[in-house]
Nucleic acid binder design. Structure first.
Length: 272
DNA sequence: AGTACGCCCTGGCCGC
DNA sequence: TGCGGCCAGGGCGTAC
C-alpha cells in the first residue's frame, strides 16, 4: 500500500517526465475516481490544455499543480501511477481508470484494482489546508515535542500513528516498523509514552520513512514505482507481515493482532 | 470533541 | 478442477 515513502518515490520519478509539460488529452473512465469532487467529465475538461507547474506531496497525497488549481491524487490501497514513454510500451488494462497524454508524447496512467484511490481538483492556494492533514514527519517542524503534542488522547499509539489528521503519511507498514524500531508495543496508550519513548519513536519514524524512500518503497503486493518496478524495502521489514517468523533481533516469534481493525505486527520480547 | 466501527472494492487464498 | 466465502485495508460517514 502506498504510504509516504512510496508516494514520494513516485513523485520523484514523475518530476522529470511531466513537470513543465502540457496535458493534451485526458481520459477518465471510472466514476468512483472523482467521487469527492466533480464528475470524470468535469475533471477531464478542466485538465485539458493545462501545464503542470510542480509536483508536491503532502502525507499520502500527491498534488499536480496546474496554476490556479491542483489535481490531487490519493492512491488508496492499490493505486499506481505509471509513466509511459511515447505511444507504445505500457498498455491500459481494465484497472486503468485515467490516462493523461502530454504534448510531445508520453502518457501518465492511473491504475487501481480496488478503487479506493481518488483524483479531484482543488484550488492550489488552499488545497493542503482544506484536506486537514497533520504534521509532515520528515519536515523540520516535526520535533519530539510535536510528536508529544500529537500523542494526546486515550487511543493506542498504533491507531494514533495511522490518524492522518495528527501525523501525515504513516500507514500500516511504517507504523508497525517504526514502533518496532522504537521498542514500543503498538497497544500502548498514546498518552502513556514517557519522554524517552517519545524521543525514540520520533527518531524511529524519521529513520524508517527515510529508509523506505532510500529503498524505493515496500512492495508487499501491488505497489510499483512510476516505472513499474517494485520497491526493495519489504526485505528490510522487521515485523510487518513477519508473524510466526523469528524476530531478527532476539529470535522471539513475531505476533500478529488486530488493532482498530488493522493487522498489527510486533515482537513480544523487543517491544514494551 | 474524541473515539469506535461499518462500509467501499477486488484478487487471492482457503476449504470442501 | 471448481466454487463459495472470507480477508486485507485507507479514509469517510455515522453513531455514541
Amino acid at each position: 500500500m502506498p504510504e509516504l515513502p512510496e508516494v514520494e518515490v513516485i513523485r520523484r520519478d514523475l518530476v522529470p517526465h511531466i513537470q513543465g509539460r502540457r496535458i493534451v488529452e485526458v481520459s477518465i473512465t471510472e466514476r468512483r475516481l472523482t467521487r469527492r469532487r466533480g464528475t470524470p467529465a468535469e475533471v477531464a475538461a478542466a485538465l485539458l490544455g493545462c501545464r503542470i507547474t510542480a509536483l508536491r506531496r503532502r502525507g499520502k497525497f500527491l498534488f499536480l499543480d496546474l496554476g490556479q488549481e491542483s489535481l490531487v491524487v490519493h492512491l488508496g490501497m492499490t493505486g499506481q501511477l505509471r509513466w509511459a514513454e511515447g505511444r507504445g510500451g505500457v498498455k491500459a488494462d481494465r484497472h486503468t481508470h485515467a490516462v493523461l497524454s502530454f504534448e510531445g508524447g508520453g502518457r501518465l496512467l492511473y491504475r487501481d484494482t480496488r478503487k479506493f484511490g481518488e483524483m479531484f481538483l482543488l484550488p492550489t492556494a488552499t488545497a493542503t489546508e482544506s484536506l486537514r492533514i497533520g504534521i509532515e514527519p520528515l519536515h523540520s517542524a516535526f520535533t519530539p515535542r510535536a510528536l508529544q503534542q500529537a500523542c494526546r488522547g486515550r487511543r493506542s499509539i498504533k491507531t494514533l500513528l495511522l490518524d492522518q489528521t495528527r501525523i501525515a503519511g504513516i500507514g500500516n507498514i511504517y507504523a508497525d516498523e517504526a514502533l518496532f524500531r522504537a521498542g514500543i508495543r503498538p497497544t500502548r496508550r498514546a498518552d502513556s509514552l514517557r519522554p524517552e519513548e517519545i524521543r525514540r519513536l520520533h527518531d524511529a519514524i524519521r529513520r524508517v520513512l527515510r529508509a523506505g524512500i532510500r529503498h524505493r518503497g515496500s512492495s508487499i503486493s501491488d505497489y510499483r514505482d512510476a516505472c513499474g518496478r517494485p520497491g526493495r524495502f519489504a526485505a528490510q521489514h522487521r515485523v510487518y507481515h513477519r508473524h510466526g517468523m523469528p524476530c531478527r533481533v532476539c529470535g522471539a516469534t513475531i505476533r500478529r493482532i488486530l488493532l482498530g481493525q488493522r493487522g498489527t505486527h510486533y515482537c513480544p520480547a523487543c517491544q514494551h
